[in-house]
C-alpha cells in the first residue's frame, strides 16, 4: 500500500468558500476534484499538500449547458458526463471520441474535466481537445473572475496560469455551425495515456476550409496545438494533398521526447498520421453536415 504524507482535508461548500479557504491556506493547499491525478501523486509523495480542499460538494461547478453561442462545461463535470453528453456530441463529436479513450470507466466516473485541464499533463486528452476548439477557461479568485483562452492557459508541463487562491470554474467552447470534428489516439493499451493524439475540427463551406483547429497531446506541442498547420489549411480546399501537407506541418510543431511509449521518429510520424486521419473524418463530417 502506498501511503501519502500527513494531510488535512477540508470540504468546500461553495465557490466562494473554496476560494477563501485556498487563499487562507496558501501554497500548501490544493483543490481536489476527482483525485485521480492528485491522490496518486500524493501516495508517491511527489505532491504533499498540507491540506486538500474538496470541490466535490459544489453543485454549481457541475453541468453542461448552451449559453449564447458557447458550450459551457462546469469544471467539476466528470469525464463520464462529458462522454455521455448529447449536447456536446451534437456540436462536437470530438468530446465523445476523446472521452472514450481517456483512462477507464472507473476513472471516468470521478475524474473531472477541470482536474484534467488543471493537471495539464502533457498527454491530457481534454487539453488537446480544448486547444483544438479554442475554448476559454473561466477562473475565479477573491478579486473576481477572469477568462483565459485555452491556448494561453498553460505555463509548461503540469503548470497553468491559475494562481494560489484561484480555481477553474468553467470551460467555454464556441459553437460553430457545420463543424466536423474527430479525435485520434494511439495508446499502448486501453486505459493508458496516449503515445500521441490528435483532435481536430474543421468547417468546410463553399468548397474550402473556412476555419479549423488542430490539437495534439503527448508530443509537447506548445499549448497542445498546431497553429502553422491550421494556417496552411484555412481557406484551402480539403483535398487529400492539402490535408497531408497540414498533417506534416503539425508533426513539425510536435516536440516529442523518447520514452517507453516510443521513440521520437515514431511519435512524430504519429502526429502526422493521426492528424491526417482526424482531418479526413472531420472534413467528411463537415461536408455531410
Amino acid at each position: 500500500m502506498q501511503t501519502p504524507a500527513p494531510v488535512e482535508y477540508a470540504k468546500a461548500t461553495s465557490i466562494a468558500d473554496a476560494i477563501s479557504r485556498l487563499e487562507a491556506l496558501g501554497e500548501d493547499s490544493r483543490p481536489v476534484a476527482g483525485g485521480y491525478s492528485l491522490i496518486p501523486m500524493m501516495k508517491l509523495r511527489l505532491a504533499r499538500p498540507e491540506t486538500v480542499v474538496d470541490l466535490n460538494g459544489i453543485a454549481e461547478l457541475r453541468g453542461i449547458r448552451v449559453e449564447g453561442n458557447e458550450l459551457v462545461v462546469g469544471a467539476m463535470t466528470t469525464h463520464a458526463d462529458v462522454l455521455s453528453s448529447a449536447i456536446l456530441f451534437e456540436h462536437y463529436p470530438i468530446f465523445r471520441e476523446a472521452e472514450h479513450v481517456i483512462a477507464d470507466p472507473i476513472v471516468r466516473m470521478r475524474g473531472t474535466i477541470g482536474g484534467s485541464m488543471c493537471q495539464a499533463d502533457p498527454a491530457s486528452d481534454l487539453s488537446a481537445v480544448g486547444s483544438a476548439l479554442r475554448g476559454t477557461a473561466v477562473i475565479a479568485g477573491s478579486a473576481g473572475t477572469r477568462t483565459v483562452p485555452l491556448r494561453e492557459f498553460h505555463d509548461g508541463p503540469y503548470e497553468t496560469v491559475i494562481q494560489t487562491g484561484e480555481i477553474l470554474t468553467e470551460l467555454r467552447y464556441p459553437i460553430r455551425p457545420g463543424a466536423g470534428s474527430a479525435y485520434e489516439k494511439v495508446e499502448r493499451r486501453a486505459g493508458d495515456w496516449g503515445v500521441c493524439t490528435s483532435g481536430v475540427f474543421v468547417v468546410v463551406s463553399g468548397g474550402v476550409i473556412t476555419e479549423c483547429g488542430i490539437g495534439m497531446a503527448a508530443v509537447n506541442a506548445d499549448h497542445y496545438c498546431a497553429p502553422e498547420a491550421e494556417a496552411l489549411l484555412t481557406g484551402k480546399a480539403p483535398t487529400e494533398e492539402n490535408l497531408k501537407a497540414a498533417a506534416d506541418a503539425a508533426a513539425n510543431e510536435a516536440n516529442p521526447n523518447a520514452d517507453q511509449r516510443g521513440p521520437v521518429d515514431y511519435k512524430r510520424h504519429l502526429a502526422s498520421e493521426l492528424t491526417l486521419r482526424a482531418l479526413r473524418r472531420a472534413v467528411a463530417a463537415s461536408q455531410g453536415a
Binding site: V186, R188, V195, R261, G262, P263, Y266
Partner: peptide, 8 residues
C-alpha cells in the same frame, strides 16, 4: 510488440 516497436 508495442505500436512503436511494430511500426519501427
Amino acid at each position: 510488440l508495442t505500436p512503436a516497436n511494430v511500426w519501427r
